[in-house]
């Protein structure tokens, strides 16, 4: 029996409400707003209250996909990563660093945004990094 409440931050709007994701035996069962959070003081909007519902949706992507003969086909991580890295290398060599662009995201964590721009700048050698903050 594994019942947990994990304190986290909302993935939707910029209010940044804090809540607990409630789980029982590895399944998300609900969202409970954090009373002691100075941001939302135990309150949430409709999106926050239902945020646990999309996480374990049947429609989630569960496997890497690679386009083969025009179709996106399920492949192993090994194959997907090897393809991606070698293709990036190839393009960098043929067209230069600035032929590669990166869209980071307002939806992933700080650490992940940091890592993407680090990869773009240090590994690829381009400042072509942006995200849709403008949008």
């Amino acid at each position: 029996m594994d019942y947990r409440n994990t304190l986290t931050t909302c993935t939707y709007c910029g209010c940044g409400c804090n809540f607990f994701l409630e789980s029982l035996d590895g399944k998300l069962t609900g969202t409970i707003p954090c009373k002691t959070s100075p941001v939302n003081e135990g309150k949430l909007c409709i999106k926050g209250w239902n945020v646990h519902q999309f996480v374990q949706s049947e429609r989630r992507l569960k496997q890497p996909l690679l386009r083969k003969n025009g179709e996106l086909t399920e492949v192993s991580w090994e194959e997907a990563l090897a393809f991606t890295a070698s293709k990036l290398k190839e393009i960098k060599e043929a067209n230069g660093s600035d032929a590669i662009g990166f869209f980071a995201s307002a939806k992933v964590t700080n650490e992940e945004n940091y890592l993407m721009q680090k990869f773009a700048r240090a590994a690829i050698g381009t400042n072509n990094v942006d995200h849709c903050a403008r949008l």
Partner: peptide, 19 residues
């Protein structure tokens, strides 16, 4: 901010002109 981590993405240098 419209999206939850727009501030963070900007802070983290996910922009073409800044780290």
């Amino acid at each position: 901010r419209g999206q939850n981590n727009v501030q963070g993405a900007c802070d983290m240098g996910a922009l073409p002109n800044v780290y």
